[in-house]
Amino acid sequence: MTRTFVNTIVVTLFFLLVLSGGDARAAAKGSASKQSCAACHSEFSSLLPKAHPPVTGKDVTACTKCHAPDAKVTAKPKPYSARLHLSHTQPGAEVDCLACHTWKPGKSLGVKGTKANLGVLSKEGMEETKKIFASWSSSRYLDAHHGKKNVTCSGCHEGKVPEQGDSVENARCLACHGDEEKLAKKTEPKDFPDRNPHKSHLGTVNCTVCHSAHKASKTYCLDCHTKFNMKIPFGEGPQAKPAAGAKAK
């Protein structure tokens, strides 16, 4: 369960750092050549660690021929990571998904030059996924917070590409955010210890009842206890609260 991508050391870290610069924006403008990395990256050596052997090629297969995508993180050398999305999905600088992915609408989604099967994605699903990626890379919500900490889709949605309506199990959240007791201790109000959203009269509730990744989070307690003064990270309006010190284990 603790297999989140936070712990995955990934070869593409250096891509991320460099690509967040102007190169990607330039790429968005050139439409005909979107399908190739070469439109932005004339060479790869400056993106790679010093010790990395030289790489040639014009698309993602330059990487994947050595680094296989592998959600189980057992591939050697180190697996290819979905973190590469972060710099390539910034609003206004989105790179065409098909620059790296193979996709048969309603059938399969893969990665060029590999046998990876990331799941089934319909046309609508593709549009939704693009929106989610844009949110993940730049929103004010919980998804972007995870993005900044290098947690990708599979950090929460195990395995395949999430479908519309998919949720996240508590165990998946708690894998990084500690056990329930510890979590409850952190949010215990000093004045009224029993007004603790993580130890309420409703017993164990799903994290997702309050915490949404791709939209504003909302304190469920306030639906009934309208006068409580409660704030939630990544909420909206008066519910908003900066996630100060909200560090994963």
Partner: peptide, 10 residues
Amino acid sequence: MPTYGGNSII
């Protein structure tokens, strides 16, 4: 509802 128990739990 997103939580179980309805009126009973309260």
